[in-house]
Simulated assay, not measured.
Amino acid sequence: MELSSAAIGSKITFGSYFTENAEDKAPLSWIVLDRDDSAVLLITELCIDSGVYNPGCDDITWAESSCRKWLNGDFFSEAFSAAEQELILETAVTTPDNALYHTKGGADTRDRVFALSLEEVKRYLPDNESRKAVPTPYTLSKNLWTHKDKTCYWWLRSPGIMQYNAAAIYYSGLISDIGCFAGDEKVAYRPAVRVKI
């Protein structure tokens, strides 16, 4: 499906990443979350990798997190060709404070790849079913927290109950404002990008 004609809720392929194993890449499937006349907002259909939001027990926000660095560094380089990278827009990203626990969202950033915030996930994926996600076989091999139906936890960029936690989506699709410990390696990554059309 062409980006220019992709409707909200439809699926498209864009880029490629490790799917079955750490050696062979396959096209990445994305869900169209939003669109305007110039760009589409996409999120991966599956959880494409896993790892910490940030290592250790230090207070952290999205701006300084290793998750952000990995998404905009290794993942961006690995998943997209030079031509595809040219299509991915640099997005002004604001991360609000956690409204329940008043932990700090941190500085605004400009990112090519990002995780959704609490506010965005409520806007674009409004119910538990739409938020459920399963990992690729490659991601599943990394010993994730998973349910019997293979759904898994995935990171949001918002802070959790403490400054060393980050908000997450549980395998049931439930939004966790409390979140997970930022150093938890068993939570998956589900990137979002804005792509020119």
Rank of each mutant, 00 (worst) to 15 (best):
V93W: 03
T95A: 01
K104N: 12
E84W: 12
D37T: 14
G56E: 00
F76C: 05
V121M: 00
C47P: 09
Q85P: 11
I60S: 00
L87P: 11
A63T: 01
L100M: 14
S77Q: 15
A83K: 13
G51V: 05
N54L: 02
R123E: 09
E78H: 13
T61G: 00
G105M: 01
T94P: 11
T103R: 04
F75A: 02
Y53G: 03
K69N: 14
I48M: 03
H102A: 14
K122C: 10
G56P: 02
D37E: 15
D37Y: 14
P96V: 05
N98F: 05
L42G: 00
W62L: 01
A82D: 15
T103V: 01
D36W: 00
T44S: 06
I60C: 07
R123G: 08
D111C: 07
D74N: 09
L33I: 04
P96I: 04
L116Q: 02
T109R: 09
Y124D: 12
D58T: 10
V40T: 12
H102F: 15
P96K: 04
P96S: 03
G51T: 07
D127E: 04
S38I: 08
I31Q: 05
E119C: 03
E45Q: 13
R112E: 04
L118H: 08
G73C: 07
R110E: 10
C67N: 11
F80K: 04
I31E: 10
I31F: 11
A115M: 11
V32C: 02
L41E: 10
W62Q: 09
V32D: 03
E120A: 10
E120Q: 14
P96N: 09
A107L: 14
L46Y: 13
I43V: 15
V121Y: 00
L46P: 02
R110I: 15
C57I: 06
R68W: 08
S81F: 09
G105I: 06
E78W: 05
V113R: 01
L71V: 03
L125Q: 00
K104D: 08
L42H: 03
D108M: 15
W30T: 09
D111Y: 04
R123Y: 09
D49M: 08
